[in-house]
């Protein structure tokens, strides 16, 4: 099974290597409730706008260093004027354009029976599983650019240091609903498995 097909595996496959009883518990794993979901497609535009801002800021800084505006020229003398800043802009712009496309393709999240499941990452790919029993508090965050697009970010915290999971690019209303749902989840401790 390849890593890229993992999403299918996570939702459907419960098989285990033969002769290894260690995995037997996976067998009766519940299906993902509703299955894994993508982010809101608007998140790409949001990321693109953010990337454009990065490009302007970094490109501007590079241009200053390149042309010697306000600061001494920081680029080796042999380089033609404009070469360095052009290079910086091309690299940053490429990442800002391509990055959101890959990230959007890569991002999935699911509210499963017992836990929140998040897949993400471009270079370092990861899948986080955050059991609802471990949730300490749940936030939604919305920056100024995200507000323009009507997007919000869901942030969950456990006792582990730092943020345990975040889901960016949710429709603002939906993020609220998700937050409330997670915040009021009572862990199902009653029935034995």
């Amino acid at each position: 099974m390849s890593w890229s097909s993992e999403i299918e595996a996570d939702s459907r496959e419960g098989g285990h290597p033969e002769g290894d009883s260690r995995w037997s518990e996976v067998d009766d794993r519940e299906e993902l409730s509703g299955g894994p979901r993508r982010l809101d497609p608007r998140v790409r535009s949001y990321w693109w706008v953010r990337g454009a801002i990065y490009t302007v800021v970094l490109g501007g800084a590079a241009l200053m260093a390149d042309m010697g505006w306000f600061v001494p020229r920081l680029v080796p003398g042999g380089w033609p004027e404009g070469a360095f800043s052009t290079g910086v802009v091309v690299v940053v712009l490429t990442f800002s354009v391509v990055g959101p496309l890959i990230a959007y393709e890569r991002w999935r999240f699911a509210l499963r029976e017992e836990d929140l499941w998040i897949r993400r990452g471009i270079l370092i790919r990861s899948v986080s599983v955050i059991p609802y029993r471990r949730l300490q508090f749940v936030d939604t965050e919305q920056g100024p650019i995200a507000r323009i697009f009507g997007l919000a970010e869901l942030v969950v915290h456990t006792a582990a240091p730092g943020t345990s999971g975040r889901v960016p690019g949710l429709d603002a209303d939906e993020a609220e609903i998700l937050r409330e749902r997670l915040a009021h989840l009572e862990p199902s401790l009653d029935e034995p498995t």
Partner: peptide, 10 residues
């Protein structure tokens, strides 16, 4: 355990 995560670098 609080969070479980699998990760893969290139």
């Amino acid at each position: 355990l609080q969070v479980l995560e699998t990760s893969q670098n290139p």
